[in-house]
Simulated assay, not measured.
Amino acid sequence: MLADHLPILRLRLRTDRLELRLPSTFDEVADLADTAAAGVHDPDFMPFSIPWTEGGPEATARSVAIWYHRAIGRWDAQDWSFPFVVFHEGRAIGVQGLHAKWFAVTREVGSGSWIGQAHQGKGIGTEMRAAVLHLAFAELGAEYATSGSFVGNHASAAISRRLGYRPDGIKHAVVQDERRAEERWRLTRDDWEAHRRHDVTVDGLDPDVLEMLGLD
């Protein structure tokens, strides 16, 4: 089995409504690409620093498929990015990423996400980020988590506040040849503990997975 060689394929995060894991088949990657092609955000507001949704549905779907394979193909124990696919009622509805550099030393993770428009406004965005925060703090021993959202991305900022993040400054990026202001957010272990609202179950976090995360 491929999971014998890539142990991260065994890792599962479960909440009341969601399962977060890596896809086990190409059809699941295709399902995720179809979700993205159906729409991720208002076309008048680009929420991503890399505008991967700007080329229309077909280009967006292809971008998702290529991104997933690239994320796995560049895996590095000291600079990893976990592309969790979010499954709801058996369908791939979005991505909740968790990433870190030299995590064993820094004990800091970052996150990023997207979710299909048909599934927005239902609390799923909060629940899926809560799942990876549980993995980071409760299972991996993180001390800090960071996130970012462009000014005007009210939904993302609201999730950060709801989960206990505090403002952590502003940085600027160039997106589609325009300067954009990004609000930075930081979550401490104490603030995470104080704002926990979701039960999360973690399966498959064995020594082989920890080794792939630089925690052997």
Rank of each mutant, 00 (worst) to 15 (best):
L2N: 13
A3F: 14
A3N: 14
D4W: 13
D4T: 14
H5G: 07
I8F: 09
R10K: 14
R10I: 10
R12M: 08
L13Q: 08
L13N: 04
R14N: 10
R14G: 07
R14W: 10
R14I: 10
D16R: 14
L18P: 02
L20H: 04
L20F: 06
L20K: 01
L20Y: 06
R21G: 06
P23W: 03
S24G: 13
S24L: 13
T25R: 04
F26R: 10
D27W: 13
E28N: 08
A30D: 12
D31N: 11
T35N: 07
H41D: 10
P47Q: 11
S49E: 15
W52L: 12
W52I: 11
E54R: 14
E54V: 14
E54G: 08
G55A: 15
P57F: 14
A59F: 12
A59D: 14
I66M: 12
A71E: 07
G73V: 02
A77F: 01
Q78A: 12
D79L: 09
S81G: 09
F82K: 00
F82Q: 00
F84V: 06
V86N: 02
H88M: 14
E89Q: 15
A92S: 09
I93A: 07
I93C: 08
G94Q: 06
Q96E: 06
G97E: 03
G97R: 02
L98S: 00
H99Y: 08
A100I: 01
F103W: 01
F103Q: 00
A104I: 00
A104M: 00
R107H: 06
V109T: 03
G110E: 03
G110Y: 00
S111W: 02
S113W: 04
S113Q: 12
W114L: 05
I115A: 05
I115T: 09
G116V: 09
Q117V: 15
H119E: 12
Q120L: 08
Q120D: 10
K122I: 09
G125E: 07
T126P: 05
A131D: 05
A131F: 07
V132L: 01
L133Y: 00
H134V: 02
L135D: 01
E139C: 04
E143V: 00
A145H: 03
T146P: 01
G148T: 04
F150E: 08
F150P: 06
F150T: 11
F150D: 09
F150A: 09
V151G: 10
V151N: 12
G152M: 10
N153L: 09
H154T: 11
H154L: 13
A158P: 04
I159Q: 03
L163Q: 02
L163Y: 00
G164V: 04
Y165T: 01
R166G: 11
R166N: 09
G169S: 05
I170S: 07
A173P: 11
V174H: 15
V174M: 15
V175P: 11
Q176Y: 15
D177H: 15
D177V: 15
D177T: 15
R179C: 14
A181G: 06
A181L: 07
W185D: 02
T188E: 00
W192C: 02
R196I: 04
V200G: 04
T201W: 10
D203S: 12
D206P: 01
P207L: 05
P207T: 03
D208G: 05
L210V: 01
E211V: 05
L213A: 02
D216E: 07
